[in-house]
């Protein structure tokens, strides 16, 4: 009897979730439906899912998991692609395929960290600036102006160099240059939302500013943020690779794609496979996030909806 009761209660709580979130669920179903109709977005989702699988199951997929870390095989130095080493080996005799598979794990983490940090800082600031207006708005927007009026890659490199070049600092440096974009987007959204009746009602009911920002303004301005974030995960990976390439990011022996290209470059033109395969991995990854972002934009941007 008790079990049935629990089941019923759970069922009804599920139902109530469905009822209260009916609108959001309908919206989600609509987005999925639209995405399914665009082959390019599907390709993007396919690429990203494959990469996630590679990242999660890296130890099982990589033929030589140890090669992504400290293993060395001096006898197998710089072997061309062949059976057993499908993408060849590097200057320490490590299997390139294994290192690239583990690099996927690292790259996805980098992409998510950078974008996550930028969103966490940029979004609340944008909502606060848009809602409060006046002095605070002015100050926040002038600070973003300074950041935006400056080539971001130069800034990221300078910060990374100054903090001491390593992967963590590269991630911090790139995030520092990216949050203003989110502040801009969310502020613009907030300015138009602010005039909407439901915000006015919330204010009239003396709902706290904090609650308005986090429960009403931010959730309602998430669509453009989602589009930007899905594109940015790809670009974050690209930028970190670029920083690592010029020596301002990951340090050996980390299996980071940009770093692998930088080291592989020394063995060009003879060991061509060393620098080429990580580059291809970067390109496919960024392409995947780009396709997804473009697809999401087409779905979420009401101006393009038909």
């Amino acid at each position: 009897m008790r079990l049935i009761e629990v089941l019923i209660r759970r069922r009804s709580s599920l139902n109530s979730f469905r009822d209260t979130h009916a609108h959001q669920l309908r919206e989600l179903r609509f987005i999925l439906h639209q995405l399914r109709r665009s082959p390019l977005s599907l390709a993007g989702i396919g690429i990203i899912l494959t990469l996630v699988c590679l990242a999660v199951f890296a130890p099982y997929i990589a033929p030589y998991p140890g090669d992504a870390f400290y293993d060395m095989h001096p006898d197998k130095k710089l072997l061309a692609p062949q059976k057993g080493h499908w993408l060849g080996t590097d200057d320490f005799g490590r299997d390139m395929l294994s290192r690239i598979v583990f690099g996927t794990r690292l790259s996805l983490m980098i992409g998510i960290y950078v974008t996550g940090l930028a969103v966490m800082v940029g979004v609340p600031l944008g909502a606060i600036a848009g809602l409060s207006g006046g002095r605070l708005d002015e100050v926040i927007m002038r600070v973003t102006d300074i950041f935006l009026s400056f080539p971001p890659l130069v800034l990221a490199m300078a910060i990374s160099a100054a903090l001491g070049p390593n992967l963590i600092n590269a991630i911090i440096a790139i995030s520092v240059t990216w949050w203003p974009w989110y502040t801009r987007i969310v502020r613009g959204q907030t300015l138009s939302l602010r005039e909407q009746p439901f915000i006015e009602v919330a204010r009239a009911l003396a709902v706290s500013k904090r609650r308005i920002v986090f429960r009403h303004l931010i959730p309602n301005s998430l669509a453009p943020v989602t589009v930007q974030a899905s594109l940015d995960v790809g670009y974050a990976i690209l930028w970190t690779a670029a920083l690592s390439f010029v020596g301002l990011g990951a340090k050996p022996p980390v299996a980071e794609w940009g770093l692998m290209i930088a080291i592989g470059r020394r063995y060009l033109p003879d060991s061509w496979w060393y620098a080429t395969s990580p580059g291809l991995a970067i390109m496919i990854t960024v392409l995947g996030f780009n396709l997804l972002g473009d697809g999401l934009r087409d779905v979420l941007d009401p101006r393009l909806r038909r």
Binding site: I261, A275, G279, I284, V286
Partner: peptide
């Protein structure tokens, strides 16, 4: 799309490899 996604430094290396070294 391929141009946006391709790492600039990697493209440079490929061109170098092909047109200068090869």
């Amino acid at each position: 799309l391929s141009g946006v996604a391709m790492p600039l430094f990697w493209l440079g290396l490929l061109l170098q490899l092909l047109l200068s070294s090869y």
